[in-house]
Simulated scan of single mutants.
Amino acid sequence: MHERETIEVELLLQAIHQLTGYDFRDYSRPSIMRRIHHRMKMNQMDSVSILQNEVFTNEEMLHQLLQDFSINVTEMFRNPLFFKYMREEILPIFKELSEIRIWHAGCSTGEEAFSMAILLKEAGLLEKSKIYATDMNEEVLKIAKEGKIPLSKMKNYTKNYQLSGGKQSFSQYYTTDEEYAYLQEDLVKSISFMQHNLVTDQSFNEFHMILCRNVLIYFNIGLQNKVQKIFFDSLSAGGILGLGHRETLQFTDVCKFYETKSIEHQIYKKKEIRYDE
């Protein structure tokens, strides 16, 4: 990235922050640049400055760019062996709890949160569990709250479910019409979908498990540290943290306060120690 374009990008991100309150200034630059260049190409713009001017004068352009910056790649039982480990090694730990609180941060359209609800149901834990699924993007949250998934995706999701150790008929968890699969009402009702921005918002509860998978790879090191502190403060002693397979607690300020449960699946357990000790 040339020096001029670097300055233009900084000014664009500053403008977006002041106009909307959304702060992308500490997002990974290669990731942000891919999205900026995509929007420039789609609208035949020659420079970031032209895009910035459009952002100031065209509300629809600002909306489109915010959607470009929002990461919405997800699927049910994504990385099935992660969920298999959860099923076999982690959920049994929670059986003695009277209440189980789980936070899915960066939930997109909710598929991974729905996957966890199915795991909890099969473990006999759903009725005493509450899943909080959050995302900065209001539009994907509206989709998630409907509990419906394009039918074309269900074949792949069924395969993922089976690879995750699922022994039931996956089709028992939904009904269908010609276009969509509609998840069972008890699965949908077990999840509270809420807007929350990891960059600007703080902890809002204490959780026994936090899952934030394939979100932190889009943040720079400083922002990753900030978010990991929020997660640490939000986890109960002995709580579980699950990250994406390309993410790690290594090199973060809170790393020493966790023990590794699975390096393969990036699953960690918070030690029973305070952050300031």
Rank of each mutant, 00 (worst) to 15 (best):
I131N: 09
L19C: 03
V227E: 00
L66K: 04
S70D: 12
S262E: 02
E206I: 06
G222V: 06
M154D: 09
W103M: 04
T109W: 05
E59I: 12
D46R: 08
P80G: 02
Y268E: 01
L12N: 07
E264R: 08
C107S: 09
I90W: 07
K145H: 15
F251A: 04
L19Y: 09
M76V: 00
N43D: 14
F82L: 08
N58Y: 12
H63W: 11
I221Q: 14
G239K: 08
N53V: 06
L198V: 04
C212W: 04
I263D: 11
T200F: 03
K226V: 07
R34G: 04
K153T: 06
V140F: 10
I90C: 03
Y218W: 03
H37D: 10
E272N: 14
L13K: 05
F231T: 05
F170A: 01
M45I: 05
N43C: 10
F24W: 01
K142R: 12
E59F: 13
N214D: 04
D177S: 06
Q64H: 14
G110S: 10
F77M: 02
R25V: 02
L211Y: 07
H208N: 14
I16S: 06
G239C: 09
F257P: 01
L11A: 11
K189E: 15
E8Y: 08
Q266W: 03
H37W: 11
E54G: 03
Y218G: 03
S190D: 11
G110V: 06
L126Q: 07
D177R: 00
T109S: 15
P150I: 00
V215W: 05
I273T: 14
S164G: 08
F251H: 06
L211Q: 08
K153A: 10
Y182R: 09
I240G: 05
M40Q: 13
N197V: 04
I131Y: 13
